Computed example of a mutant assay.
Amino acid sequence: MKARWDIFCSVVDNYGDIGVTWRLARQLVAEHGCGVRLWVDDLRAFERLCPEVDVRLDRQVQEGVDVRRWPADWPATEAADVVIAAFACQLPPGYMEAMAARARTPLWMNLDYLSAEDWVVGCHGLPSVKFKGVQKYFFFPGFRAGTGGLLREAGLLGRRLAFQRNAAWQQQFLQTLGVFPAAGARLMSLFAYENAGLASWLDVLAADGCTTHLLIPEGRILGDVQRWLGIESLSVGDVQQRGALTVQVLPFVPQTQYDHLLWCCDFNAVRGEDSFVRAQWAGRPFLWHIYRQDEDIHLDKLDAFLELYTEGLSAPARTALVSLWQAWNADGNMAHSWKKLLEHWPELTVHAEKWCLEQGSRPDLATALVQFYVNWI
């Protein structure tokens, strides 16, 4: 009999938390035959990623996953064999009592945030707190051996490569979004938090000798784009041109379509955690807008990833990439660092694909979680 899994997701950053848990739940069902209940406290945010979700329902099945509303008044519920608290969310007290009441206690894991910091390897898989005899374990996604790996569906990289080799497929997909880039234009995507450094980047793109078509999924960065354009409103479907730069606002799309969008683009600016990982699977140069934390501790995570990611780059290419990422995450001036990055574009493009294949050779996160459970029992 396959194990039953409960995954708890408290939506904090709109789409990152639910994005990760929704991908994980689907993969556990589709590839490992697990029975999965996904408890979500914000179905409205979930609906953006999965439009089929009915936000009025307390229980529904989507792609084989038993999706449950996480209510304020917790009902009596039998605990599953494996319990995942995503991103250190606090489980309902009633559910914790149900875990302790089981004849065989469940495996309880805290699926933590993704980090490239050295200490993650030493903490991955270690026991944490106990609740009435139920032991919780740390489970860390990561980029190194000795961590839980990254979310990656079976065959993903093969599908991506086939898509990127087929210009007709890419054109057909873009046309479904109303995107018709000029011949030879650099195609870029921008999904980010608010950023005061955006104007300097758009300025240099508009003045560039190469045309750029910038695709912006509906989100928090639109206000900054609107101010730079000097217009009163900016909404889905709008297309604006300034010099060599064309800006186009896209609707928020489901996860599979977002993957295809990343695969189409020559460069992707992403944010948070879920889109950060998906940009790496695209095998193209990218820019990460990390979620800000108190006392700037997020910058340690940024630097740790950059140290790992830039291994193998020439010193000038590494300097250009690091400068761009640091400027973007400090709301700094992007003009000089973007121009320097363009000087090393071929090397950075080859490196992005190499990094993707290297990470793709490691066990994926869902498989690592299942293996952890098998080892535990």
Rank of each mutant, 00 (worst) to 15 (best):
187 L>G: 02
197 G>R: 01
342 L>D: 01
63 E>T: 06
143 F>E: 03
34 C>I: 10
39 W>E: 13
334 M>Y: 00
115 S>H: 04
164 Q>L: 06
338 W>Q: 04
374 V>E: 13
117 E>W: 13
61 V>T: 13
154 A>S: 12
200 S>E: 14
248 Q>L: 10
96 M>G: 04
248 Q>P: 11
159 R>I: 11
362 R>D: 14
184 G>C: 08
5 W>R: 05
11 V>E: 07
174 L>G: 02
30 A>E: 13
293 Q>N: 03
43 L>E: 13
179 V>L: 06
311 E>A: 13
302 L>P: 00
172 Q>C: 01
85 A>V: 02
132 K>R: 14
254 P>D: 12
296 D>L: 08
76 A>S: 11
258 Y>G: 08
59 R>I: 03
28 L>S: 07
165 R>N: 12
23 R>K: 07
38 L>Y: 11
356 C>R: 04
236 V>N: 05
33 G>Y: 06
197 G>F: 04
359 Q>I: 05
214 L>A: 03
320 A>H: 08
276 F>K: 01
41 D>F: 15
357 L>F: 06
209 G>S: 14
114 L>S: 10
201 W>V: 12
299 L>W: 04
158 G>K: 06
76 A>Y: 03
344 H>V: 01
6 D>H: 15
346 P>M: 00
256 T>W: 10
169 W>C: 00
194 E>I: 09
255 Q>I: 12
5 W>I: 07
278 R>K: 12
314 S>P: 00
33 G>V: 09
336 H>E: 09
200 S>D: 14
332 G>P: 00
12 V>N: 05
144 R>C: 12
307 E>T: 06
107 L>V: 11
377 I>S: 10
282 A>N: 01
37 R>I: 00
197 G>E: 08
64 G>R: 02
183 A>K: 12
280 Q>L: 15
265 C>M: 09
155 G>K: 06
297 I>T: 05
368 A>K: 09
252 F>V: 11
320 A>T: 02
